[in-house]
Amino acid sequence: MTRIWFTLLALTLAAPLSAQEEPDAGFKAEMILALKNLQLLDHRLNAIGYRLVDANAPYCDQKAARTGLLLNDVAQYVDQETARFALGFSGPIGITAVAPDSPAESAKLSPGDTLLAINTMAVEEIAVDGPDLANEPPPYRRVAAINQMIEQALAQRNVELTISRGGMNQTIPVAAAMTCPSQFQIRVSADRSASADGKLVSVSSRLAEYFLTDDEFAAVVAHELAHNLLKHRDELDAKNVNRGFFGQFGESAGQIKAAEIEADRLSVWLMTNAGYDPQAAIRFWTRYGMEHGKGIFSASTHYRWKKRVQLFEEEIAQMGAAVPVDGKLAPPLLTGQD
């Protein structure tokens, strides 16, 4: 994850900074607070993202092996020693967040655990120069390679992770959950934005701070996840749709808007199946639209907020007429019944 330093809102995280009782005099308190605030956002997004992909797995034609872990590499930070202290790591790679009701939680893994090895292979020995990592900035290649290795190993069998906790090493077996594919990240930025690239859902830190509830947070995450599940990026690329400045006009704008409408429609089904209140999408966009008018998400490629709210109301009404199966609603856009 990209980490650009600035002080986030003064939220506090209940977990201790580390095994130390108080920060060393050389550590900067302001940076520690920013890191802990960022970790809180990571916790929220990791939990929401995992819950969405896990609950909707029966309707995804492709599956990915997931543990519910969010890993972090201190190499991503300018001040690595302060980052290690704030996150509670004793080494370079550690666990930042564990999603509730995930295999990682069942294995009793915890934020602050330091990752030492995967199936006896030390993290220092994992190759980071593969062609599939070439587009990753150098500080992020190691954690990307580790995530890739864990996912590949989980697809074959359970994985054993060797961790360090409180100065003691232990090897813990971790099972796999086959979920809808997608990963999630907080992107530290002063703008309010969210995006999906086909594999990753990214939410800016400033937007994440704006949500009043996890249901509102889930509304935006579900919208971006819907883009990934519906393979909109591949579809638009196949049609040579311009997603840059000129994509705001003409045929490209129409194609992008159609994808945005589909993502809005699917999002409330994904939310409902994961136990989130779909009405939160209406509350969020009403509040955002009234406060920011023609700001973010109001280009010609998106509905204006009032029409967007109307779309949600119509889709939620359609959901009300659907018959649940095993407590879930089959999303028409994923089951081909649309």
Rank of each mutant, 00 (worst) to 15 (best):
M1H: 07
R3L: 15
I4T: 11
L8N: 03
L11Q: 15
L11M: 15
T12G: 12
A14M: 15
S18I: 06
S18C: 12
Q20D: 14
E22A: 15
D24F: 11
G26V: 04
F27M: 09
A29N: 11
A29Y: 04
A29I: 08
A34P: 01
L35P: 00
L35W: 00
Q39Y: 08
L41Q: 06
D42Q: 06
G49I: 01
A55L: 06
A57C: 00
P58I: 03
Y59V: 06
R66N: 13
G68H: 10
D73E: 02
Q76L: 15
V78S: 07
Q80H: 00
E81N: 14
F85L: 14
G94F: 02
I95F: 09
A99C: 07
S102M: 07
P103T: 01
E105A: 13
S106H: 12
A107H: 01
L109R: 04
S110T: 14
S110G: 11
D113V: 02
M121F: 10
M121T: 14
V123G: 04
A127I: 11
D132A: 12
D132C: 04
L133T: 01
N135H: 15
E136V: 13
N147L: 10
M149Y: 10
I150H: 07
E151R: 15
Q152T: 10
A153Y: 11
A153M: 14
L154G: 07
A155Y: 09
N158S: 15
V159P: 03
V159G: 08
E160M: 14
T171K: 06
Q183E: 14
F184A: 04
Q185Y: 08
A190R: 13
D191R: 04
R192Y: 09
G198P: 07
G198E: 00
L200A: 01
S204W: 04
L207V: 02
Y210N: 14
D215S: 10
F217A: 06
F217S: 03
E224R: 06
L225A: 09
N228F: 11
L229T: 13
H232N: 12
R233N: 13
K239D: 11
K239A: 12
N240S: 12
G244W: 04
G244A: 05
F245G: 06
Q248P: 01
F249R: 06
G250F: 06
A253C: 01
A253N: 04
G254I: 02
V268D: 06
T272S: 12
N273E: 09
G275S: 07
Y276P: 00
I282K: 02
G289R: 11
G289D: 01
H292I: 08
H292K: 10
T301H: 13
H302D: 13
W305L: 02
K306L: 14
L311P: 01
F312H: 02
E315N: 04
I316F: 05
A317N: 00
P324A: 11
D326C: 13
K328A: 12
P331H: 05
Q337W: 04
D338T: 08
